[in-house]
């Protein structure tokens, strides 16, 4: 719980920090991408704090390359 509150405080500080900068940029895409990425980051970290299983990108790598490693690399060398 405290971790989540701390995290939210940190992100509030980040928003505060970037706000004046983003205000000067007229492009709306800048604000949206900042907001969306920050949202994703927050969501992921909160999920991680409550031990919600997330997707590990290394599993994808393993899934693709394990057969190649075992069938090609190990055979050739």
């Amino acid at each position: 719980m405290w971790k989540v509150i701390g995290l939210l405080l940190v992100s509030a500080a980040i928003v505060q920090f970037e706000y004046s900068h983003l205000k000067k940029i007229r492009n709306r895409m800048d604000r949206w991408s900042f907001a969306v990425l920050l949202g994703v980051g927050l969501m992921l970290s909160i999920m991680k704090m409550y031990d919600v299983p997330l997707f590990n990108p290394l599993q994808a790598i393993e899934f693709i390359y394990k057969p190649i490693y075992e069938n090609v690399f190990n055979r050739v060398l």
């Binding site: 980040i14 900042f34 920050l38």
Partner: peptide, 9 residues
């Protein structure tokens, strides 16, 4: 502006 969000991720 992307640095902090990407850093968290």
């Amino acid at each position: 502006p992307l640095t902090f969000p990407l850093g968290i991720i």
